[in-house]
């Protein structure tokens, strides 16, 4: 592993970990449509906030994202987390749909927070 990746990996791992926790944390409790709908609305609201400050992440809801593989009518399709949520909801799997909506929401919240943290970004030399 090179020096750059070594320096970055702990940060990335943390982000991924939190991402996963956000997904798993609420999954069990939400096999129903109403919970999914709330999670979806929350995700959209969070992503809209991130968008306003230019902080959206690639795999949250970008239509060209290939982050998540979903089996749709016997075919594997690649899509964003929010699109995966919608695809699972369409198939009636509200538990998985809610999981992916929660990940999208987390990414919206984190992207917004990141942009806020970077308000005074400039050269460090």
């Amino acid at each position: 592993m090179n020096r750059l990746m070594k320096r970055l990996t702990p940060g990335i791992a943390l982000v991924l970990l939190i991402g996963n926790l956000a997904g798993i944390g609420t999954a069990g409790a939400s096999g129903d449509e109403a919970a999914y709908k709330m999670a979806h609305a929350d995700a959209v609201a969070a992503l809209d906030m991130a968008k306003k400050v230019g902080g959206e992440w690639r795999d949250a809801r970008w239509k060209k994202s290939k982050a998540v593989k979903v089996e749709v009518e016997g075919k594997t399709k690649k899509m964003s987390n929010l699109a995966a949520a919608e695809a699972y909801a369409k198939m009636g799997d509200y538990e998985k749909a809610t999981q992916y909506a929660d990940i999208a929401k987390f990414q919206g919240v984190a992207g917004y927070q990141q942009a806020m943290d970077q308000k005074n970004a400039g050269p460090q030399f």
Partner: peptide
């Protein structure tokens, strides 16, 4: 100079500091 994305990196992180 703004860090962005899931990897939390700026253009400068790659094309200046590294």
């Amino acid at each position: 100079y703004t860090k962005r994305g899931q990897l939390n990196m700026s253009c400068a992180d790659c094309h200046v500091y590294n």
